[in-house]
Amino acid sequence: MQVEKEEILHIANLACLNIKDEEIEEYRKNLQDILNWVDIVNRVDTSNINETICSTNNINIFRKDEIEEFQDKELLLQNAPEKQNNMFNIPKVIQ
């Protein structure tokens, strides 16, 4: 699969990352090298094979849906880059 410059910018945008103009080629080449290499997965015949999502194959592990109040709210907020009263501060979203 050939990776184009525009694609790198598209992927970076999806991943919420900025890529500087001078970095684009490096990222492109890097991704290209890795994709060329991981292409060997296509050597494996997987007709009639299901995917493994998780090695234990456990699905739908339920627990009781009970509300537990987290006691240390102060500790939660202490990591906030910007806060006001009991809330996280963000820039205005609706103009």
């Binding site: 994709l35 997965v41 494996v44 997987t46 995917e51 493994t52 999502i53």
Partner: peptide, 13 residues
């Protein structure tokens, strides 16, 4: 890529 890799994962197992 992703789905194929998950299938190969089954083969490895």
């Amino acid at each position: 890529y992703y789905k194929k890799a998950q299938k190969v994962r089954t083969v490895i197992k």
